[in-house]
């Protein structure tokens, strides 16, 4: 995947993030992270809850700015959120007052540049809805959908403006095991069709092993990169594959030493 010829899609250079808390203490959530992600790569950020992996995702998304260091996407430093980086959140953030179809088309009509880029917004909307398997639910309001379907719609919405990068913050964390498994397979299919670069935050080893090209294991707060595990196995993967089991047990050991007091 990371052939030396192609420049990195996401470049994270010595990034540190310090938040000041309400009682004026400084809380370092991310400490000197260095990571380079290639075009088309599927990266999982794996770490204990509250370690700062979502913060790293928010930095790439542009919701937060680094206290030190630089985040760059496609060679340009990130200064604000933008349609080149689609985001799928853990809680569903579909616009409840819009139908599925209007949610998806919002990203195609919400500013003049984008409108110019997608003259056929209706066609593009339908294509994205079809891609996530929601055909027939175009005119349904989000509250009438199940959890899995909401996340399908959220993925369709984030894909609509054709971002190069898809950032996913534990998108399947709230789903039941079976739905999650279906969604993971769907996501892999979507990834293979669209060739997006995906950064996927999870605290589930199983999920990371099932999805990722590379798993970035993070330490407890302040988060550093503990190790990067490369998986060169074809998909769909069998979770009981002995090779995966080896990697899983290694990851368990790695995570166990990072367990935090809660």
């Amino acid at each position: 995947m990371d052939s030396p010829a192609s420049p990195p899609m996401i470049e994270i250079e010595n990034v540190t993030k310090v938040f000041s808390t309400q009682d004026n203490r400084n809380l370092k959530t991310i400490d000197d992270i260095q990571l380079s992600i290639a075009q088309g790569e599927f990266i999982c950020l794996l770490g204990p809850s509250g370690c700062g992996k979502s913060t790293l995702l928010n930095l790439i998304a542009g919701f937060e700015t680094p206290s030190a260091g630089i985040v760059a996407c496609a060679g340009k430093p990130v200064v604000a959120p933008g349609p080149d980086r689609g985001v799928v959140f853990q809680e569903h953030t579909l616009f409840e007052w819009m139908t599925v179809s209007n949610n998806v088309s919002f990203g195609l009509t919400c500013n003049p540049d984008i409108r110019a880029r997608f003259p056929d917004a209706a066609g593009r909307t339908q294509a994205c809805i079809d891609l996530v398997g929601l055909r027939g639910f175009e005119n349904t309001f989000p509250n009438f959908l199940s959890g899995g379907m909401k996340q399908r719609a959220a993925i369709a919405r984030s894909l609509a403006p054709d971002p190069a990068i898809l950032l996913m913050d534990e998108p399947f964390g709230a789903l039941d095991a079976q739905t999650r498994f279906i969604m993971q397979n769907e996501l892999l299919k979507i990834w293979q069709t669209t060739q997006k670069t995906i950064v996927f935050v999870t605290h589930s080893i199983e999920e990371a092993v099932f999805l990722a090209d590379r798993i970035v294991v993070m330490t407890k707060r302040p988060a550093r990169i503990k190790e990067i595990v490369k998986l060169d196995m074809p998909r769909p993967r069998n979770i009981n594959d002995p090779m995966l089991s080896d990697i899983k047990s290694r990851l368990y050991d790695s995570m166990a030493s990072e367990s935090v007091m809660i």
Partner: peptide, 25 residues
């Protein structure tokens, strides 16, 4: 927090955020 981030990540203009997100939301 919730909807504005989603709208901003889609590149929504101010006008669009006020008319399509804040007003109906």
């Amino acid at each position: 927090s919730k909807y504005l981030r989603a709208a901003e990540s889609l590149g929504a203009s101010r006008r669009s955020i006020i008319l399509s997100i804040i007003m109906p939301g």
